[in-house]
Design a protein around this nucleic acid. Sequence first.
DNA 1: TTCGAGTGCTACAATTTATGTAGTATCGCC
DNA 2: GGCGATACTACATAAATTGTAGCACTCGAA
Lengths: 104, 104
Amino acid sequence: MVKRVRGSKTGRPIMVLLDLLGRRWVLRIVWELREKPRRFRELQDATGASPTIVNSRLAELREAKLVELDAESGYRLTALGKELLRLFLPLHVWSEKWAKAVAI
Amino acid sequence: MVKRVRGSKTGRPIMVLLDLLGRRWVLRIVWELREKPRRFRELQDATGASPTIVNSRLAELREAKLVELDAESGYRLTALGKELLRLFLPLHVWSEKWAKAVAI
DNA sequence: TTCGAGTGCTACAATTTATGTAGTATCGCC
DNA sequence: GGCGATACTACATAAATTGTAGCACTCGAA
């Protein structure tokens, strides 16, 4: 049971998804899992988020069946999670172009 | 000048972008602008976010050159913003599939 | 068999961020 | 003038996040 979107309570999947992905560190955590599984502390160190928030985000992502914990290797993307990531991969290239345009 | 990512201070474009998109209501606002320009109050009503936050998110998005304000029509995506949205459009279809798998 | 290192995870006070309500200021129009 | 619409702001309350410290468990080495 995924937490409902806060603003609009329609429960439409796209809204629930945008709400989930719009929580702090969620996109970043998924991103850090793109290549290989990571341990709890690796995610903490890589993101710089507090353990409290890493833990609750991982819980949300597990509830959403995007991430799972494998005792051997650590946290990893599920099949669904990998699908989602695939949609986001073009962001990497695009972000470079964007950075030039915005002159961060 | 886009605010730097909080956790990792690398300033790498992808991290800055993930940080920006990971702020509450940002994805949602971009989504609401996908079809046509919207007025400030329309965005407020559609998202359910407070005017304070709508205003500051719009300011961030304008700074990031993803959104602009046209006096005639309202807030709209820039060329860059439309490019970004194009990357996100598949989410709509995918979210339906995801919803079935997760049983929200 | 105790020690240390690694694991996921939690408690909790301090800080930061978001909310909700009300309001300001400006514009065009009748 | 007065009305409605616009973008936007003030500010007290509520909620989320942070940072630090630590717990409980497992496993392998001393």
